[in-house]
C-alpha cells in the first residue's frame, strides 16, 4: 500500500469514486448544455459539477481534490463566470436593450438555439460550480484549522 492510500476513505469507496466521478462531471455538463431545451440549466449543472469535485475530496482527502482545482483557481473561475455573465448582458446593448437576446433564436428543441441563453447557462455554471466548491473548501479547511 502506498502512502497515497492512507488518506481518505477505504479502497471500496475510492474505486467506486474513480469510476463514477467522471460520469457525474459529464452529466453536469450535459445538464448545462441542454439547459435551454429541457429542465435544468446553469445552476443545476453547476451544482452537479461542484458535487463531483466534492465527491473526490470526500473519498481521497482534500489534497487530491485541491491538486485538480486549487482554491485560487476556484475563485478565479467564479469571478470569470460572473464577469462573463455581465458581459453577455451588456452585449445586449448592441441591439438597444440591456440583457437583450441579440443572437438568432434558431429552431426550438435544437441544441444550437435560443440565442444567448446557452451562453448565460455556461457563465452561470462556472460561477455556481466554482463558488459552491470554494464554499465547501472554505468550510473544510476552517474545520481542520480549529481541530489542531
Amino acid at each position: 500500500m502506498s502512502r497515497e492510500h492512507k488518506k481518505g476513505m477505504s479502497l471500496i469507496v475510492k474505486t467506486i469514486t474513480r469510476l463514477t466521478v467522471g460520469l457525474i462531471l459529464l452529466y453536469g455538463i450535459y445538464i448545462i448544455l441542454h439547459g435551454h431545451v429541457s429542465p435544468g440549466g446553469g445552476f443545476a449543472g453547476g451544482v452537479i459539477i461542484a458535487l463531483s469535485f466534492v465527491h473526490l475530496m470526500l473519498a481521497y482527502g482534500k489534497e487530491t481534490a485541491l491538486r485538480k482545482v486549487s482554491r485560487s483557481a476556484a475563485s478565479f473561475f467564479e469571478s470569470v463566470g460572473a464577469t462573463l455573465f455581465l458581459l453577455i448582458a451588456l452585449l445586449g446593448f448592441t441591439g438597444g436593450y440591456f440583457f437583450l437576446n441579440f443572437l438568432g433564436k434558431g429552431e426550438p428543441f435544437k441544441l444550437f438555439s435560443a440565442g444567448i441563453i446557452p451562453l448565460c447557462n455556461i457563465a452561470i455554471s462556472l460561477k455556481v460550480g466554482a463558488g459552491l466548491f470554494a464554499i465547501f473548501v472554505a468550510l473544510v479547511v476552517l474545520n481542520l484549522d480549529s481541530e489542531k
Binding site: S75, F76, E78, S79, V80, A82, T83, L86, A89, L90, F98, F99
Partner: peptide
C-alpha cells in the same frame, strides 16, 4: 438606468479577478 447595477457589479467582479 441599468448602469446603476452594472457598474458596481462590474467593479466587484473585476476587483475579485
Amino acid at each position: 438606468i441599468p448602469f446603476f447595477v452594472v457598474i458596481p457589479l462590474a467593479g466587484a467582479f473585476l476587483t475579485a479577478l
